[in-house]
Design a protein around this nucleic acid. Sequence first.
DNA 1: ACGGTGACGAGAT
DNA 2: TATCTCGCCACCG
Length: 114
Amino acid sequence: MKKLTDTSNSNNFFTMVYDIVAKIPPGRVTSYGQIAALLDEPRAARTVGWAMHSIPDGIELPWHRVINAQGKITFNKHGQGASLQRALLESEGIVFNLKGRVDMSKYQWQPQEG
DNA sequence: ACGGTGACGAGAT
DNA sequence: TATCTCGCCACCG
């Protein structure tokens, strides 16, 4: 699991995920399941998560704006990662509650907005 | 072609 | 509410 999707192939599921992530505006978040739903495959949340885990070096995406449906960060890199993602989100104005979660009803991205 | 795998999700306990 | 269990699906060797 080193190299993954060839981003030049826009037909790949991974690339489609990246295209959506790239559209998430600052101060907003979305869930893996929502992205899957936008791709017309609501049961492929895990695949979306894998796509995020496999973002190729070289391309820039607001990957930190993708969290799980519970409003919680699941990204875990070397025991860290979550702290980095949280810091990035907080820098955009997103507030975490005492449980370390965000209010999805308040921050979840609404595609129709833009 | 087949099976293992993963930054998930929803329901049950 | 916190955990645990099981189903899902695309990508890779």
